[in-house]
Design a protein around this nucleic acid. Structure first.
Lengths: 145, 145
DNA sequence: GAAATTAGGTGAATAATTCAACTAATTTTT
DNA sequence: AAAAATTAGTTGAATTATTCACCTAATTTC
């Protein structure tokens, strides 16, 4: 019944994978709302990215992004700089501390994701799913424009 | 960076697919917390299922399940009946009204899931992913026992 | 039969999300 | 070029969801 439903699996795995990541992160004392890590990594890799871009990329409300960035800035991981070409816009950059943490987190998260799914599917299956999802994700972002 | 991460895609698609379902459900005036629909469908298809089973299946806290069932019962969609073999346990059943709603919802959700992903991947890709996830899901539930 | 575990449940604390509203900057219209 | 509409970021309140510790009663385990 819920058996052939991709939406169901996406939900269930989201819950399970989040829990797994929390377990991995707990020893590091890292805390933060759900989109915090994704946001930090996005800023680390795309210096100058804007809050709105993060919001549309992750599919969340922009007010959440603002709160997330506030948090990251308060921890001195991220800085805001107003854009020269648009004084409304704030460009986001990681600090050195933020860059270091992003590197650490990225390694940890790649390991976590691989480990979590390694128990559940073969490497080939994993790569097939990633490939399909990657293209689907790109299409999703096009559609939502 | 987040690019090859299955955990990332699972999260992003969970957000997007939930939103899509909410849009589809809104006209029907159906409201309920996140696991409400999954719970109702599980009870409809597996009459006599217990709250704890739902909780472990969906990977959520049992207190959430209790609240969800309270809600469903209050709407006269579900009834509790204490099990003969274990007086602590409550077996869950749908009422006629619950069964009707479950049928309606199931059709709607299958349509929603198919429609959502049809825009993002081919039918073959969809079926490949479902197949992999189905087996992964079964393994996940084994592991968690 | 005592001790430990399990099912269901409660309620308070915490966290996350939504939403409407606001300012200031920018773009579009007229 | 002034007026109108839109956009980026932000705030705060209301709502919703989740976690957690704890409780009772029933059942197992020892």
């Amino acid at each position: 019944m819920l058996d052939g439903l991709l939406s169901f699996y996406v939900r269930v795995f989201e819950i399970a994978v989040s829990r797994h990541l929390d377990d991995r992160l707990a020893p590091l004392g890292f805390t933060g709302r759900k989109g915090t890590i994704s946001s930090l990594l996005l800023i680390a890799r795309h210096g100058g990215i804007r809050a709105t871009t993060i919001a549309t990329l992750l599919g969340i409300d922009k007010s959440i992004t603002v709160k997330t960035v506030d948090e990251l800035q308060h921890k001195k991981l991220v800085s805001r700089r107003s854009a020269v070409d648009d004084k409304r816009a704030q460009e986001l950059f990681v600090t050195q501390k933020g860059a270091d943490l992003a590197d650490k987190l990225e390694k940890l998260i790649v390991a976590h994701s691989d480990e979590f799914f390694a128990n559940l599917m073969t490497r080939e299956e994993h790569d097939i799913v990633v490939d399909i999802f990657r293209r689907a994700f790109n299409r999703l972002r096009e559609v939502e424009q």
